[in-house]
Design a protein around this nucleic acid. Structure first.
Lengths: 213, 213
DNA sequence: CATCATGGTGTATATGGTACACTACTCGGC
DNA sequence: GCCGAGTAGTGTACCATATACACCATGATG
């Protein structure tokens, strides 16, 4: 019995998953890069990535990357696109299935990783600029018509925190009264009854995301 | 010098491109399937596909499929998603980068291909039902806010033809006056000055798609 | 008790979407 | 040449949604 069941005359491309992990920290949208210590692009900042293991679901590869490179769990994980332009990897024919993740923890940089503001990114290697641009565009596009924004926040949050998160993601200010009206009318959140405390201001109602309905 | 430059301990998955080609014919949204003559799934209808050649751009693989399998040129080609669930191909670890295409020609079935109405699809092989469902959803979602719908039509067309195309894609009837008002106000088309002829009715103005603003 | 920072609230206007029906014209058949 | 079939083309009233905009109340801090 032949070891390889598939009739396939061509050399296979290598397949990697690259991950664009987002968080919002101090009213800024940030993403995670890692400094390469091997060529190609040694010393350059790149998206964390890994080769796909045998019979490994792509999504598993993506969460494995987040776990191994940053010791993080992603709250949200979505496939972005697959990049396969010849020449994108100087080592040869390498496809990259890009995913993007959203993380809500305030984390410290682990190993050679660092969180960069999307407005102040360093020069990257490979075609990771393209991947990042696609990811940011997708994230912004989906923010208003999906529940993706809640993935940046802890279980309970105030409406002001939610608004600041949206503003950080979109990069534009939002009107407070209209924002609250819109969020509440869509019934995407429910009041917990609890109130936040601390700060030189009145306590604010804490809300929780309501997935369905 | 080693033949393989990439340090990569794992067996590589095979990579295919599968194509969902759409057309609108007789007010019906149709897609192209091909009858497999080899196992697995011999005799089953499947999406046309091919393995990715060495250093071949994915988009080239996609248009090659359309050319080789149906002798067609796609007017529009867009990457859909990459499917890699273990077990999706009984032969082993095979990733499929799915594309969708739009074709405007009225064509006859070539070889073992056949155009099926999306409302009356046969049983398919692999995970092609998933791919098709994703493609139809994407197509419908993008119809109203992109210019994707014009790819189904020839250079010049009447507003009624455009409306019927939209209705076929969406699967729902549209109001004639509102449709025309909306299309014209968005300035997505310009009148050519020419009029259609033939048919037991007055001649209709022919329009042309205006890509930019 | 004064200051600071945020919490929380409503109305008026503009914009865009939806529902809805009739006359005019060309072709083809008789 | 007359009639029927089939489509071209057109406007208004209503409703829902998005936008612009400002002030007082409250709790913490020193």
């Amino acid at each position: 019995m032949p070891k390889r069941l598939i009739q396939y005359d061509f050399p296979r491309p290598a397949v990697t998953v690259d991950l664009v992990a987002f968080r919002v920290q101090q009213d800024t949208l940030e993403l995670l890069l890692i400094e390469r210590d091997q060529p190609p692009f040694a010393g350059r900042w790149t998206l964390p990535g890994a080769f796909v293991h045998e019979n490994e679901p792509l999504e598993t590869t993506a969460s494995r990357i987040l776990q191994e490179k940053a010791h993080l769990e992603g709250i949200y994980l979505e496939q972005l696109a697959t990049f396969g332009k010849p020449g994108r990897d100087p080592r040869g024919h390498v496809l990259s299935v890009a995913y993007f993740a959203i993380v809500n923890a305030a984390t410290v940089d682990e190993g050679k990783t660092h969180w960069f503001s999307v407005d102040a990114l360093p020069e990257t290697g490979f075609d990771h600029d393209d991947i990042i641009a696609t990811a940011v565009q997708r994230l912004r596009g989906k923010l208003t018509y999906t529940d993706i924004g809640f993935a940046f926040l802890p279980d309970t949050f105030t409406l002001t925190e939610l608004q600041k998160t949206w503003q950080a993601v979109l990069g534009t200010p939002l009107d407070k009264r209209n924002f609250r009206k819109s969020i509440l009318s869509q019934q995407r959140v429910v009041a917990t009854g609890e109130k936040s405390s601390g700060g030189a201001h009145p306590p604010a109602m804490l809300y929780r995301w309501q997935p369905e309905r």
